[in-house]
Amino acid sequence: MATEAEGTGLVFHPMDQFIVKPLFGEGPIHWYTPTNVTLWMGLTVLAIILVLVVGTRGRAVVPTRIQSIAELAYGFVHKMVEDVAGKDGLKYFPYIFTLFMFIVFANFLGLLPRAFTATSHIAVTGVLALMVFVSVTVLGFVKNGASFLGLFWVASAPLALRPVLALIEVISYFVRPVSHSIRLAGNMMAGHAVIKVFAGFAAIAVISPLSIAAITAMYGLEILVSFIQAYVFTILTCVYLKDALHPHH
């Protein structure tokens, strides 16, 4: 985990930033223990409330800056759901908007120095992805009944190929939550770990300017990635929702 090259004093702890620790004192982590996860998720909620509730309290026709951010986010996700999942997908817009706001704010808050990135944990993204997967599957069967299975039966393919394709489709369907969650967690984890590795190199005076420049560049990329991963997570949720609502391709 930590590697020390003797003599140079180079110490790398790229994964230490992801450790879950109790906020108060030591001891084992029970399911109810307030940990740094709690702290940063709470800050996420606070940030969301700040932008979406406090920022819009004026209800101004000509928006203030924060209100226009809130409206921008609303319009962005609303349009995404409408474009990808269709008009009947708009019913599930609050759910998708919740996901988007949580991921985007957790990602951005995680970029603060010394912060803990909740979305870099498989446990968190896995639950998010599983919630999407389960609800979309249940929704598909409730809305379409058995014809939801038509999603796996590619009617446009030659008859001989269809069972093979159906097998592939089923596998890819069940891989969805895995890739859905690992993509987000992996991206966040990779970026933060790389920044930490560069930060470890800064201990050597000669290459520290280079290392700091690299950290700055990675940080810029991470800001982009934070947004894009939230966007991708949301839009894939919309795509899965579309599959559940209209299973026939």
Binding site: D83, G186, A193, I228, V232
Partner: peptide, 23 residues
């Protein structure tokens, strides 16, 4: 652009998998 980002996400996910294996 939405299709672009989905495509990039799918392509990138596999790279992330290899990164995960390395980790």
């Amino acid at each position: 652009t939405a299709t672009l980002f989905i495509g990039i996400a799918f392509a990138e996910a596999l790279g992330i998998f290899s990164f995960l294996v390395a980790l």
